[in-house]
Computed example of a mutant assay.
Amino acid sequence: MVGYVGADVPVELLTAAEAFAVRLTGDPDADSAAGDLYLGTGVDPMARSILSRLLTGAYGELDRIVVAHDCEASLRLFYALRELRRVEPGAGVPEPYLVDVRHLPHRTTARYNRRRIGEFAARLAAWTGRPLDVAGAVAAHDERRRLLAAVAGLRRERPARLTGRQFLAVANAPLPLPEHVALLEKLLSEAAGLPAHHRRRVFLTGGDHDTPHVYEAIEADGHVIVGEDHSFGDPSFESQVGAGDLDALAEHYHRGGPYAPASTAAERAAHTAAAARRCHADLLVGYARTGDDAPAWDFPDQRAALGIPAVLLDRQEYGRADVKELRCPA
Score class of each variant (00 low, 15 high):
G6S: 02
L13W: 00
T15H: 14
A21N: 07
V22M: 10
G26C: 12
A30W: 11
A33Q: 14
A33Y: 06
G35N: 09
Y38M: 08
T41R: 14
V43K: 06
P45A: 10
M46Q: 13
A47H: 05
I50D: 00
L51S: 01
L55A: 03
G57L: 05
E61L: 11
E61Q: 14
V66Y: 03
V67C: 11
H69S: 13
D70K: 00
E72Y: 00
L75K: 05
L75Q: 03
F78Q: 07
Y79G: 01
R85Q: 13
R86T: 12
V93A: 04
P96N: 07
L98Y: 12
R102V: 14
F120I: 10
R123D: 05
T128N: 06
D133N: 13
D133K: 11
D133T: 11
G136A: 07
V138C: 02
V138H: 00
E143V: 05
R144Y: 00
A152D: 13
R158A: 08
L162D: 00
Q166G: 12
F167G: 01
P178C: 07
L183C: 00
L187Q: 02
L187N: 02
L188N: 06
A192E: 15
G193L: 04
L194N: 04
H198W: 11
F203S: 01
L204N: 06
E216D: 13
E216K: 07
E216G: 03
E216R: 14
A217N: 01
E219V: 10
A220N: 13
A220I: 04
V226W: 02
G227P: 08
F237V: 02
E238M: 10
E238I: 13
L246C: 08
D247F: 01
A248N: 03
A248W: 07
L249Y: 04
H254A: 12
P261I: 08
P261D: 03
S263E: 04
S263Q: 09
T264A: 03
A275I: 05
R277C: 06
R278V: 01
R278S: 10
A281F: 09
Y287T: 04
A288D: 05
D292M: 04
A296F: 03
A296L: 08
Q302L: 10
R303Y: 00
A305T: 02
G307F: 08
G307R: 07
A310Q: 04
L312G: 01
L313S: 02
Q316Y: 02
Q316P: 09
E317I: 01
Y318E: 09
V323T: 15
C328T: 15
P329R: 08
